[in-house]
């Protein structure tokens, strides 16, 4: 299961020729193995904002953006500052490319560096957040809800740097390491809060993945059939979107549960009954889907329900034979 190392750039309101230069630089770097994504709209979650300091749009975005977000400013009088790098206009593609390449290296290491300047370790249960955290799922959910930035350490496993603001998780470890950390009992985890502002330096490679990807795994691993507090089994719910199953761990039954919940609003009790999937597994799936914002609550149940489809058994037999033939190798 690969973890993305892509750096997300948002470049709202650039002039055409600057945008072309940026696109070209990004393309050249991607070919050389530094992967960027480029979005022309403003994205608060982007790792890097590229703005024209002298355009109205650029100035407006600059004013409203997060202080911790790294910016690359196009300017006729370039000046650098904290989290701000500037480049001379008109933009030279090669200069831009070299600058982006440096930023790429530096930004991958940014979160890791932050670990060195921080408070003392505390076990999870000692945290002053007020939310009881019994396991990694509770902890990550709290980080997401309260936009915290935390370092999570488990004995002999690579550290996780969880950024609830940008909804990302950085680690030098693999996804397997992340899963092992997620499975670690809370009393063996060490967590500490990180400062919002961090310095850019260092060169260690980090794998960055979305917080939701890790939350999903944590929900499945840690829920153990225990429904999230405040949720009930008799309220109809529907799936707003399917989880990205190809890039997250899932159990075979999850496809069935997702298909049913995407089609019709159902209570969790009904979902378990109709799918014949054990209730505990239904709850784990629900907790995961809820925590990554895929659940929609339905009030007008009867109006919303689609009629049950009559499936003939011969057809179902064929579909299950195809599924068996195309079983995953893992």
């Amino acid at each position: 299961m690969p973890i993305t190392k892509q750096l997300h750039i948002s470049s709202p309101g650039l002039a055409d020729q600057d945008l072309v230069a940026l696109r070209t630089a990004v393309k050249l770097l991607s070919q050389a193995g530094q992967s960027f994504s480029l979005e022309e709209k403003y994205k608060n979650s982007a790792h890097l904002l590229v703005l024209d300091e002298e355009s109205d749009g650029g100035r407006a975005v600059l004013k409203n953006s997060r202080a911790g977000q790294v910016k690359l400013l196009l300017s006729s009088q370039p000046q650098t500052g904290k989290n701000v790098v500037a480049i001379q206009k008109p933009v030279d593609i090669n200069t831009l490319k070299n600058l982006l390449s440096k930023l790429f290296v530096v930004m991958q290491a940014q979160l890791l560096k932050a670990t060195q300047s921080l408070h003392a370790d505390k076990p999870v249960s000692d945290q002053s957040s007020g939310t009881p955290t019994e396991n990694m799922f509770d902890l990550l959910l709290d980080i997401k809800a309260n936009r915290r930035t935390m370092e999570i350490k488990s004995e002999s496993l690579p550290t996780l740097l969880v950024d609830g603001e940008n909804r990302s998780v950085a680690t030098s470890g693999s996804m397997d390491d992340v899963i092992k950390t997620v499975q670690t009992p809370a009393n063996l985890l060490r967590v500490k809060k990180l400062d919002g502002e961090t310095t850019l330096s260092g060169t260690q490679q980090l794998n960055i993945s979305s917080l939701d990807t890790i939350l999903w795994v944590a929900a499945i691993e840690c829920s153990k059939g225990k429904l999230l507090p405040g949720h009930t089994i008799d309220k109809p719910v529907k799936l707003k979107a399917w989880p990205n199953f190809s890039r997250t761990s899932f159990r075979p039954d999850h496809l069935k549960l997702a298909a049913m919940l995407a089609r019709n609003p159902l209570t969790l009790a009904e979902l378990s009954q109709f799918s014949q999937v054990p209730y505990d597994d239904v709850v784990d799936f629900y907790n995961a889907a809820y925590s990554v914002d895929l659940i929609e609550f339905q009030e007008n149940l009867e109006q919303m329900r689609k009629p049950e489809q009559k499936q003939d058994s011969k057809r179902l037999g064929l579909l299950s034979k195809i599924a068996k033939r195309l079983a995953l190798s893992g």
Binding site: F245, L255, A259, A262, S275, Q309, S320
Partner: peptide, 9 residues
């Protein structure tokens, strides 16, 4: 597999 799951329910 996801397609088959949709078609089966």
């Amino acid at each position: 597999q996801a397609l088959l799951a949709i078609l089966s329910c």
